[in-house]
Design a protein around this nucleic acid. Structure first.
Lengths: 149, 149
DNA sequence: TTCGATTATATCGTGTGCGATACAAATGTA
DNA sequence: TACATTTGTATCGCACACGATATAATCGAA
C-alpha cells in the first residue's frame, strides 16, 4: 500500500471534521437570530416532520445517544420550544412535541437553506458536486452506523 | 429554485456532521490504546511535521481558535506528551514541542491509517470516491475559511 | 408467575468548540 | 518617545458528545 493511501484516512477524517465545523459556523448567524444551536435546529427539523416522538427516536434520527439528546431536549423544554411528557402506554418512554413557540420558528427556519446555499456554492464547489458528496456521505453513514454497534 | 435545492444545504450539513462524528468514533479504539483523543491526535500529527511551533500556528493548521487549542495543549502538557515554553524572541508567544513520550507514540499512530482504511472502504464507498470527496472538501474548506473572518 | 435480561431515560465526569473577555507584549504612528 | 492599536495567549461560561453508570418499567423464558 502506498504512503499516499496510508495517509488517506487521516486526510479524509480531518477535512470532514473541519468542513463540518465550518459549515455549522456558517449556519450560526441564522441560528443566533432564532436563539438556538445547530443540534437544537436538527431537533426542530425532526419535530416538524413528526408530531410526537420519543426521546429515543429523536436520538436514532440524529444518530446520537440518549445521553446527548436527553439534556438537549431538557434545555429546549426550558426555553419552551418543546414539551416533554411521559407516555401512558409505556411509562419508561418520554414523548416530545413542539410548543406554539417551537412551531413559530418553522417559518423563519425554512428560509435558512436558501440563504445558506449562497454561502456554500462557488466556482470550485457546484451544485452537482454537493449532490454527489451527499450521496457518498449517506452511503458511508449507513456503513459506519452498522459498525457502531 | 426547486424544493429539492432549497433543502440541499440541510441535507449536506447533517451528513457532514454525522459522518465526521462516526469516523471519529471509528478512530476511538485505536486512540484509546494510546490514551489520547482525536483532537490530541491531530496536534500530535502537526508536531511530527513541525519540531517547534507556536500555539497560534497549531490553531491555524487545525482551523481552530486558540481558546480551544490553549487548554487542549495544557492537558497534553499535563500528560507529558508535549512541552510548553515562552519564546524568548517574543514573550507573548508560547512554543510547543514533543517530549520523548510524545515522540514514542508516533510509531503506534502511524499504523492507524492503514487499519482505518479497512473500516472506511466498502463496496459502496471505494478509494476513488474518497479521493474525490477529499478534493471537494478541501476546496470547500478554503472557501469557508475565507468567509470565516 | 417469577425473576433475570432488556429497554428507555437520566445523570455524571471529561474533553472539546466557541463567543466574550482580559491582559501583557509588541508594533505602529504622531 | 508616548500612546493607541494589534497580536498571542489564557480564562470563563455554556452547550454539546460520549463513555460509564444508575434506575425504573417492560419483556421473556423457565
Amino acid at each position: 500500500m502506498s504512503t499516499e493511501q496510508l495517509k488517506l484516512s487521516n486526510q479524509i477524517c480531518f477535512p470532514l471534521y473541519s468542513a463540518s465545523r465550518l459549515i455549522t459556523q456558517a449556519y450560526q448567524p441564522y441560528l443566533d437570530k432564532m436563539g438556538i444551536t445547530y443540534p437544537q435546529y436538527l431537533v426542530l427539523m425532526v419535530l416538524w416532520e413528526n408530531d410526537e416522538i420519543s426521546v429515543n427516536d429523536v436520538a436514532k434520527k440524529l444518530i446520537l445517544k440518549t445521553n446527548t439528546i436527553s439534556p438537549l431536549l431538557q434545555r429546549m423544554a426550558k426555553q419552551e420550544l418543546i414539551e416533554r411528557n411521559r407516555s401512558s402506554d409505556d411509562e419508561r418512554c418520554v414523548k416530545v412535541k413542539l410548543t406554539d413557540k417551537g412551531k413559530a420558528l418553522e417559518a423563519k427556519a425554512k428560509l435558512i437553506p436558501e440563504q445558506m446555499l449562497d454561502h456554500l456554492l462557488s466556482d470550485s464547489v457546484e451544485l452537482d458536486d454537493v449532490i454527489q458528496m451527499r450521496h457518498q456521505l449517506n452511503q458511508w453513514i449507513e456503513i459506519l452506523k452498522d459498525k457502531q454497534k
